[in-house]
Write a protein that binds this DNA or RNA. Structure first.
Lengths: 282, 282
DNA sequence: CAGTGGTCTAGACCACTGG
DNA sequence: CAGTGGTCTAGACCACTGC
């Protein structure tokens, strides 16, 4: 059996509850006895459901189940990992809380996707000032540039690459109702995004992150943004059809796949005269 | 017994699990049978743990337990509400996830407070660009103005008041390392914040929201922010020691107490040349 | 109707805290 | 050491989905 905390140590007690070690981390380790002798400090224990969560996560990132597909039922996973349904449930609960999977009662648990997620454009927090929500529909995209290049120092640092490594770089404008509103620069690791074209960026219907899933097998699960107020340079002002004294929101986003691996750096300039960046604090 | 979903209807089955209705919402209602006849649509059922959560929340907002105090143990609450510990646990889990309550293993569950919360200044997302986190310490506060006045139309709408209702209004500057960085206007409902003084705002050690808890019994539990890029007017530029062409982050925040009652409108102008607004997306 | 996630209970034991 | 939250199991039943 595989570390039901610190106890165990002896052989299998029964054949039902915690049984038969099966490729689990933290298998039985008779030496660790919590406190007392053995000298090991901070044995880095983790509860069973965390280990299960880790295993499911591993399957997710290895692509055992594709975005949008159902993962095995709780009962199946419980049998597979030799734990109770409740333990699997708690593991999945956390994955669902992190938006990695989606539960649908009566149907199953599904790998989350940027494509048909109820909340499309999860990472875009810019909303029109009119409360009409997103009736204005998705933005019109106009790709200005898309090419392969070498990473500068700051881009390399953000993407955990080395300076000079290959990256894809794209520049585009998003317009709402014909009004240019967002000017974006995107950097992607050249290795994973080899072959990305301006046409892909321009023509794909739906979130760009959904295209990344389908065409490149890269799922963004989390992102961090640093926001500032800036003034555009002349080129930027021209592209957005504004004067150089129009203040803009500078949004620098780093998006991560599984395991906190950064896979995108995006620098956006948002025009906020008819839109605003919305954030909820709790 | 009190609505263990749609079933029940008959008298008490046993005397332990679900027993004796006791002032709970959604008591037994023999007419509702989920699907089928009876014609009632959307009976608005809620699981037991949600009802328990509601009851605990009610006790929180009625001040049965003060911020920082421990609430009764899970076993006590289970006995009080005549449910299993697991059900109470799930209710508290949600309250903890919403930052209304804080669990500490081995000690108890405590009413969350802005005062000694591990994450002080929960609602302030402005960080120095240097990764040194918050070594720079809390901001120096300089209160420019604090007075009673009548609510304008937009302030009234944000605070769910009527135009002309009494509000407290304050204006202040927060500086980091002697550099004026945030210019804030704060509006508070006059009723709840009667007697607020500039001295209180200036001299209280710790988060202003902690002062609101202690001096006025108002706990902010949630907030929404709308962010824009703007240029300051002459007065604002003067107060922040900047030129009128320095772009600023405009952060309009509405903070809510329990039950989504708005209790504060705050309009901040953030200087973002050495700081940035940090946001995490997931 | 079977299968899935969702709720509820009960009991055992573990880990942490403090007296 | 007793008391608290945290984990794990097992089993029952409910609510929803689709065949």
């Amino acid at each position: 059996m595989w570390q039901t905390r610190c106890r165990n140590a002896a052989a299998e007690p029964f054949t039902h509850p915690p049984t038969t070690m099966s490729s689990l981390p933290f298998a039985a380790d008779p030496s660790a006895t919590s406190s007392g002798a053995a000298g090991a400090n901070t044995p880095a224990f983790s509860p069973l459901y965390q280990q299960i969560k880790g295993l499911i996560l591993q399957s997710l990132q290895q692509g055992e189940w594709k975005p949008g597909e159902a993962i095995p039922s709780e009962m199946e996973l419980a049998a597979r990992f030799r734990v109770s349904q409740g333990t699997v449930r708690k593991a999945i609960d956390e994955l669902a809380a992190e938006n990695l999977v989606m539960r649908r009662q009566g149907k199953g648990t599904f790998v989350a996707t940027h494509a048909e997620q109820h909340v499309q454009y999860r990472f875009l927090k810019l909303l029109p000032d009119t409360g009409d929500a997103r009736v204005e529909g998705p933005a019109q995209r106009s790709v200005i540039d898309c090419r392969r290049m070498r990473a500068s120092a700051d881009v390399a640092r953000a993407l955990a690459l080395r300076s000079g490594d290959a990256v894809m770089q794209a520049k585009r404008i998003l317009s709402f109702g014909g009004v240019p509103t967002i000017l974006e620069d995107i950097w992607l690791p050249g290795q994973a995004f080899k072959g990305l074209t301006a046409e892909q960026l321009a023509n794909y219907q739906g979130p760009t992150y959904a295209m990344f899933e389908i065409d490149f097998g890269v799922r963004m699960v989390r992102a961090e943004e640093k926001i500032r107020a800036v003034l555009p340079d002349e080129e930027q002002a021209g592209l957005l059809h504004i004067t150089p004294v129009t203040p803009l929101l500078s949004v620098e986003r780093v998006a991560y796949t599984y395991n906190d691996v950064p896979m995108e750096l995006r620098r956006g300039l948002y025009l906020t005269d008819t839109h605003h960046y919305r954030n909820e604090l709790s």
